[in-house]
């Protein structure tokens, strides 16, 4: 009896060790691929940075009127933005190559699944990043314009817009990743509809007087103040 148990344990340990031994070259290949491509990416970025600095890329971008690019780039420099894109693109290629090598060595056929899902994750990260940037931009726009329109609840509006965009983005990300798709669709529909309905009710009922007072004040302002003061 004990002999049989011992034999079974030995066999299972052997199988585990065999699996580990089979995976190790793949892991090694993955790490190696990442290191090599990171080095290539660093080298490419370095060379590109020197070339762009030599040709005064930042100044040229501004002269060509592509000023907005600077606002999205680190240290407000289009050169840095381009070099970072090159580095991370090379690194991602290394990751894919590493995964492919890992899959070839392990012979489990997971690479196509992982690569497929990885592309979804990358797209989801891009969507999330864009959503956060858009949410911040829109919330600031609403806040500033609200204040300049003399709306007392400009901050509340700005916060509402920010969370609307964030909720919308989160739903898109989860849907793209295929996580609890049905619940996300349903939950998002209820939440989004609820927020819009609540805002409509708040403006339509609760803030009716407030809105009318605001509009009255605006009318009064245009008749009295602007006759005397001319800004431009």
């Amino acid at each position: 009896m004990w002999e049989q148990v011992h034999q079974a344990l030995q066999q299972s340990i052997q199988r585990v060790l065999f699996k580990i031994a089979t995976l190790l070259p793949g892991v090694l290949a993955l790490v190696l691929a990442l290191l090599i491509f990171a080095a290539i990416g660093w080298l490419l970025a370095l060379i590109l940075r020197r070339i762009l600095l030599a040709m005064h890329f930042d100044t040229r971008m501004e002269k060509w009127g592509i000023a907005n690019l600077s606002e999205w780039s680190p240290a407000n420099s289009p050169t840095f933005l381009v070099t970072r894109i090159v580095f991370w693109a090379t690194f991602m290629v290394g990751l894919f190559v590493g995964i492919a090598a890992f899959d070839a060595s392990s012979a489990y056929g997971v690479s196509s699944y992982i690569v497929g899902y990885l592309s979804k994750i990358v797209a989801a990260i891009v969507v999330l990043f864009a959503g956060i940037v858009i949410a911040r931009f829109l919330s600031r726009s609403v806040l500033i314009n609200g204040v300049n329109m003399n709306l007392q609840h400009a901050r509340l509006l700005s916060l509402g817009v920010k969370w609307l965009v964030l909720v919308f983005t989160s739903a898109m990300v989860l849907d793209h990743l295929g996580i609890a798709r049905g619940i996300v669709d349903l939950g998002f529909g209820i939440l989004f509809g609820g927020i819009v309905l609540a805002l409509a009710l708040a403006v339509g009922l609760g803030s009716r007087d407030l809105v009318s007072r605001s509009l009255e004040r605006e009318n009064l302002k245009t008749t009295k103040e602007e006759d005397v003061v001319r800004h431009f």
Binding site: L143, I144, G146, V147, N148, N150, Q152, A154, R155
Partner: peptide
């Protein structure tokens, strides 16, 4: 308007 800005901005 200035005070509203000071509170919110």
């Amino acid at each position: 308007a200035f005070e509203l800005g000071a509170r919110n901005l």
